[in-house]
Design a protein around this nucleic acid. Structure first.
Lengths: 140, 140
DNA sequence: ACTTGACCTAGACAGCGCTCTAGCTCTTAG
DNA sequence: CTAAGAGCTAGAGCGCTGTCTAGGTCAAGT
């Protein structure tokens, strides 16, 4: 039933180093149980929790904030409003990030289009001919 | 017509430190011109170029890749296909990033919804009562 | 003359998030 | 009996992206 750190690494995609690091950093709801010999034994819940941490991380939540969330959960019932606030503000941050990326994407796509046209109609190699065009931002 | 580093910092939102750093790192198409006293004089084109760099950066392109792109542009006409490839692969990376974020967003929104319901119907403070629920991932 | 403020260079330092090393213990297989 | 392989701790190191400091120049205002 219990999982070794290696198995958890395999399932989560985190390295064993990262798993120990996350634990030291207080990102796990409770310090992982140990066998008599001191080895870590993870539960499925631990893996689920880690999966959530990974979602948080990969959406840009700093470890510090994950730790704050973890602390709230560890403290138990009574602070659900705080957790909600943290989640909501992260959601807003993610939404902002997506908007920002979409904006960047539009710019990049525009540039891709310009280059595709240049290359398709063979004008690419003429760009340098009229010196003025060398500094035309569209040709960057 | 020329802009001081301070003015460029103000327009771009980059710090003067970052501007000098970017220049040292070779992110500017040409090393910025200087006044006789050694002070940098930026053109509007420099600002446009920086704006593009900022788009690249904020969509996750590493400085290293921006430098490679800059090098291509600096080399002049003839390598448009390389530039296009770089742009396309970055576009793909940005699209992947957006998909990933949207996935995370769904998870976070789901958690927000759960907490909102808990708080709305007053079950929040009862979560700890039956011990089994203490480890229910939905209550995290 | 003096102060202020913007600028300069070179290079040290910082924060984040891991990653790796050294030196050890245990367990298991051959 | 031994060697391999997984795990352990403490702590050093790293890659990236800036940020800041020290020590200096220069121009303008008072």
């Amino acid at each position: 039933m219990g999982l070794s750190i290696g198995q958890v690494a395999e399932r989560t995609g985190l390295s064993v180093h990262a798993l120990r690091f996350y634990e030291r950093e207080g990102l796990l709801a409770d310090p992982v149980r140990r066998e008599s010999n001191g080895r870590r034994v993870y539960t499925e819940d631990d893996v689920d929790w880690l999966a959530m941490c990974i979602k948080f991380r990969s959406s840009g939540m700093p470890l510090d904030t994950i730790r704050r969330y973890t602390d709230l959960v560890r403290q138990g019932a009574g602070n659900e409003a705080d957790r909600l606030e943290l989640l909501r503000s992260h959601r807003a941050a993610v939404e902002a990030q997506i908007r920002d990326l979409e904006n960047c994407l539009a710019v990049i796509t525009h540039k891709v289009t310009i280059y595709e046209e240049h290359l398709a109609d063979g004008t690419a190699y003429c760009l340098w001919v009229p010196p003025e065009q060398q500094t035309d931002p569209a040709a960057w």
